[in-house]
Design a binder for these strands. Structure first.
Lengths: 337, 337
DNA sequence: AGGCGCCATGTAACCGGTTACATGTGGCAC
DNA sequence: GTGCCACATGTAACCGGTTACATGGCGCCT
């Protein structure tokens, strides 16, 4: 009847109910110091009775840790990114971090904005997809004093740590693979390179490989990324009466168009034309024929990115660039010549 | 030279620099009250000079708002969920909310745990995929006093608001569509129904439609979800020498197996067999032939879910169930009989 | 001149945790 | 018995914002 005040809330309420101080409740909840078994039991009982859940904002304020990591990506509607995020989320959750995803639909200004958003939100680290961004982006992230990495590319000379792969080398590998199958007249279907470093590097790798192997005749075809590009190109070849030995699709989706059009025109793949993809999207394992692909190391990259960031955040380990190798998945859209 | 103390941080530092109180800084930053132009300018200058970013945790603590919404889904490695999250993220971001995604890999206990995780994190609302969960889940969410909705299902009789579609009705629609094309001997490929309400409801809808139309002969085939199921079934039909008129695949991926196997065995689709999918996954627009599908209203559902939650959080509007209709995308894997 | 109200702004309590430091108690060695 | 230490626990300041309420200046009306 001599209540100083009615009902304190949160940890103070639990403390009162258990007859201890807030410090002790905090200690029990965080296991941060020895507490007698008896006291601990009383506290835990009060906690479950009130089904108390500590306030994350208060905790974050006091500890200066949000345990939140942000990923800024173009879109989730692309299985590569979705798979990447899936792995990230898994690894981060296992280490007690939450993943916040922000998408920007391939727009630089929007990407910058979303980075700013996640910084406001208190992300402890930011994972950015790709290496070409608004020039203000690295400044923004750096002045916020938040660790950040670029992913999907390996660029050890960059000022920013990168977790990814060397698109040039991968493209060279793909060409080498086709060459090893005996193909010499190789066409490469690629997207616009002006605003797309990734595609540009792939094309450079293709040229490198062709240059190193004089037997190869290279034909480069640029087309907006999409199945239509592949279909149109196959149509053009058929109508001109001359097919290359092999077509390397620097985006898998071109291959979809080729396969489809080949079926319509009764072109036998791989007998008349070997087709190879570059990403190993999900559908490639189920197309007709199943598509031979270079397989981007998305899962390994995701695991390594998450683990690298966790090690940095938890143990202060430096963020070191990582380069992942791709594997080549041999299926039925290519054949030995 | 008479500094009371060296360097206060955050808003106090800005206040000092601008020669105003913290309250005024807060007012400028939030536009919450009239401030003279002169003062505002001084504050903003100080803000940009120090490139000050308000601490989200402190703000959340003071306002009791985290402006965070959580989605708990099975996985991102499924284009339906990825698309759903993509839309959610878009809509929420536009309203100033952040989306936190937690995945549970189709495991009930894990789903419960992830819900608990996002509550700890301070999510202001939780979007849960599906309607069948660990029995403790609704209790958990309800006692946390956080609004939550189930998605991908419409169940107006449920105690929990649902944003989704009526799987039974959709399945009936799909059967009706095949019947309208003149198909009578209809096979339906479905997944295990024991632990999957969604699949069970679809099957119920199929049966309902068949019952309402006596001309229909229905064959139900259960198979683990995957392309293999479709391929094996087509093989079985071919070897038995009898194909149904049409096959409705209650998961698109069965159709992939069928298409593939049909090509291998030179079965002409749709001439010898009409095939229809139920989700309209991305690849269905590019398969050979392109797949006729019922198209799940993922995007509409995502928009409505986000908007419903935003309206609830921002304006206190009640969360009302919503039922979305599917459209049927007619492509080349079905034909009029 | 006096009074009133409006407006811009300041003061300080508060949100709900964490944690450095203080305190009290009991055991053990001398 | 005294002193010392280890250990369990309490006290209260602090994290960095928000906001109810107080204050003071100015214009305007009577």
């Amino acid at each position: 009847m001599d209540q100083p005040n009615d009902s304190p809330s949160g940890i103070r309420q639990i403390a009162r109910q258990a007859g201890v101080s807030t410090a002790t409740v905090s200690r029990v909840l965080n296991g941060s110091a020895r507490v007698s078994d008896d006291t601990r039991a009383r506290v835990l009982k009060a906690v479950t009775q009130h089904n108390y859940r500590p306030n994350a904002a208060a905790k974050a304020l006091a500890t200066r840790r949000t345990r939140t990591v942000a990923a800024v990506i173009p879109t989730l509607e692309h299985s590569i990114f979705a798979k990447f995020m899936n792995v990230l989320e898994d690894e981060l959750a296992a280490a007690g971090y939450s993943l916040v995803i922000a998408t920007h639909r391939f727009d630089y200004r929007s990407e910058l904005k979303r980075c700013s958003d996640v910084l406001h939100l208190g992300a402890e680290a930011v994972i950015v997809s790709g290496a070409d961004h608004d020039p203000e982006l690295p400044t923004l992230l750096a002045t916020a004093n938040v660790p950040f990495v670029y992913t999907s590319v390996y660029a050890p000379d960059s000022a920013v740590p990168t977790f990814g792969y060397n698109n040039s080398r991968l493209a060279s590998d793909a060409v080498a693979h086709l060459a090893a199958l005996g193909h010499q007249d190789i066409a490469v279907l690629h997207g616009p390179t002006a605003a797309n470093d990734r595609m540009r590097h792939r094309l450079i790798g293709v040229r490198d490989a062709a240059q190193r192997n004089p037997a190869i005749t290279l034909t480069e075809i640029e087309s907006p990324i999409g199945a239509a590009g592949g279909a149109e190109q196959l149509a053009a070849w058929v109508e001109s009466g001359r097919l290359p030995d092999a077509c390397l699709c620097l985006a898998d989706v071109y291959a979809l168009g080729i396969l489809h059009e080949a079926q319509r025109r009764a072109i036998r793949i791989p007998d008349e034309l070997s087709v190879m993809g570059f990403e190993n999207l999900d559908w490639t394992a189920n197309s007709a024929p199943r598509l031979t692909c270079l397989s981007l190391p998305t899962v390994e990259m995701g695991q390594a990115t998450a683990r690298g960031i966790i090690a940095h955040l938890d143990d202060g380990q430096p963020l070191a660039d990582a380069d992942f190798a791709a594997t080549i998945v041999e299926r039925e859209s290519t054949r030995q010549r």
